[in-house]
Design a protein around this nucleic acid. Structure first.
Lengths: 130, 130
DNA sequence: GTCATTGCAAACGCTTTGCATCTGT
DNA sequence: ACAGATGCAAAGCGTTTGCAATGAC
């Protein structure tokens, strides 16, 4: 039996993820924790994040740059609009679509559905220059 | 100036991508081409795919397993419903949503928008067993 | 004949794993 | 004290790059 133990490292990871709010890569999170003066291994951050995702306390998303980004699970499900040039992200909600995806999945006999919706574009700042 | 040259390798990659229809990883595509008797390097497949994406002839998507999947750019934009257990995929369309995403992006000052929508769930076959 | 393209192997970056040590319970 | 957790270093995996040979133009 794999019984979980509370450690300050795991607490630090969850705390920083919470504090950050948006999507962060494991490595960025690691840097942020180190910056607070706490010293812990990158491996531990990965393990803590995996644990959080499995426990439903965090979401994972595969970004375009190949990194896996994590975020604290928020009660209100929202999506991201990401600038291809500067990487700046904005959040938006899709109340109707949440229902729609459920319907589509059901009609195909799928259940226990989750969805990943990301919009990529050029933001107003980068659009002027490029 | 980087002027493009036509090679049978690039043709083979585009041809197989076309023929496949859905999302394929570079490695899968490489295997498929080898299976047709043509011999070419994996590197070449990656380079050909990158070229196709830049040229707007193919789309790229970062899958959950960390691989980058490519597909031929189809006039009719559709999305995927993927089974978490068996990996089986089904396609669906979201005519309304195509417009909706455009609207959302615009309202945030974004332009030149593309979107990635993937639904993950448990299909009927796997749902019975598991 | 030139110069982009190919293809192998080595390099890369992110993530995972092996294993000895440490620590929460 | 025991079993899970940590952290370093090394392995793993998909992808990219360096460079000599090749082939399209």
């Amino acid at each position: 039996m794999t019984l979980k133990r509370a450690t300050w490292q795991k607490t630090a990871v969850k705390e920083q993820l919470d504090l950050f709010g948006g999507f962060v890569s494991a490595q960025e999170l690691h840097q942020k924790i180190l910056a607070t003066g706490k010293k812990l291994g990158l491996t531990t951050v990965y393990r803590a994040l995996t644990e959080l995702v499995l426990g439903g306390e965090a979401d994972a998303l595969n970004a375009e740059d190949g990194e896996t980004k994590y975020r604290n699970c928020t009660p209100k499900h929202h999506h991201h609009l990401i600038c291809r040039k500067c990487g700046n992200t904005r959040e938006f909600e899709l109340p109707d679509f949440e229902v729609e995806t459920e319907r589509i999945a059901r009609s195909h006999g799928f259940k226990d559905v989750s969805h990943s919706i990301e919009l990529f574009g050029i933001c107003s700042k980068c659009g002027v220059a490029g």
